Computed example of a mutant assay.
Amino acid sequence: MIVTGFCFVGVTAVVKHVGDDLPAAQSAFIRYILGLVFLIPLIRPILAARLTRRQLVLFSVRGLFQTLGVILWFYSMTQITIAEVTALNFLNPVFTTLGAALILKEELPPRRLVAVLVALLGGLLIIRPGFREVEIGHIAMIGTALMFASSYMAMKVLADEVSAVVVVGMLSITVAIGLAPFALVVWVPPGWGDIFWLFVCACFATAGHYAMTRAFAAAPLTVTQPAIFLQLIWALMLGALVFGEPVDGWVLIGGAIIVAAVSFITWREARARRASAVRQPTTDR
């Protein structure tokens, strides 16, 4: 999870470095196209999965949500600080929990609901409406969290039907296709330097997802989730030391509250799964 945090902060640093050189949709499209090189080993499992029409529709819907979220995230990086983007990004699982309760009809016990409300309070501390100007980048990040949460809900359905390899591979393919029309509308000739840095971004993203998968395999989410907070610390340091961004203590406090709330939600869900497994009658004879 420490390596995961470094990689994801590296992604934000590269996107921040590219900045306004390219439109957000074009930067995202180039990053995903360059990242497709890492998907070559996944082509055979995807073809072997023999996806149904319903599954292809679900993958397409998920790809659309992820596409819009990626564009908003890239745009946010050009408008607000790295620390703010990182902290508000922690709201993704919070909105996923709410959406799963409202749309997928999953249980939302009182303690988990309180944790969700506490996390939303942490988000308000970061933005602080009424105490400072709410920038377009903040609104874009809220939109990002909502889009990614919608994508994750579609993933929860698909993960029960196809392998994780197919889910990851189809996401990258559908997002690359989804970004294409948005990128073409605003296309400007990219420089070789921008292409190089966006390839570095794709490498960081792929390595981060791989490291996160290994972390989840090595330890339960209740152990790995709190380590995500280190990502915010590094984002604050990177923004201050490399990009000269001001250190905002409220962002640190708000991010800590969100991470604590998300960790509690993760712990409660893990306990609920264990309890459900214990209550299920055995079929052994």
Rank of each mutant, 00 (worst) to 15 (best):
V3H: 08
F6W: 10
V9Q: 04
V14K: 00
G19D: 10
D20P: 06
D21K: 10
L22I: 00
P23R: 06
S27E: 03
R31I: 00
V37L: 11
F38C: 02
P41Q: 04
P41F: 03
I46W: 07
L47C: 12
R50E: 08
L51E: 02
L51H: 02
R54C: 00
V57M: 11
V57L: 14
V61L: 12
V61N: 00
W73L: 12
F74M: 04
M77Q: 14
M77E: 11
T78I: 01
I80K: 05
I82C: 01
A83N: 01
T86G: 05
A87G: 01
P93R: 02
T97N: 05
T97S: 10
I103N: 05
L104I: 09
E107V: 14
L108M: 13
L108C: 06
R111W: 12
L113N: 06
V118W: 03
G122S: 05
G123I: 05
L124F: 12
R128S: 11
P129N: 08
F131T: 12
G137S: 10
M141H: 05
G143Y: 07
G143I: 03
F148V: 08
Y152W: 13
M155C: 04
K156C: 02
D160F: 12
V166G: 00
M170P: 09
M170Y: 03
I173S: 00
T174R: 01
A176I: 03
I177E: 06
G178D: 02
G178H: 01
L179A: 01
L179R: 07
P181Q: 01
L184A: 12
P189H: 12
F196K: 10
C201E: 13
C203V: 15
F204M: 08
A205D: 13
A207K: 00
H209F: 11
H209K: 05
Y210A: 10
Y210W: 14
Y210F: 14
A211R: 09
T213D: 14
R214V: 09
A215M: 06
A217I: 08
A218Y: 11
P220T: 12
L221N: 15
T224F: 09
A227I: 15
F229V: 14
M237V: 15
L238E: 10
G239D: 01
E245I: 06
V247S: 00
V251Y: 03
L252S: 09
L252E: 09
G254K: 10
G255Y: 03
A261P: 12
A261D: 08
F264G: 04
T266V: 15
T266R: 13
E269P: 11
E269T: 12
A272Q: 15
R273H: 14
R274T: 12
A277N: 14
V278G: 01
T282Y: 09
D284V: 15
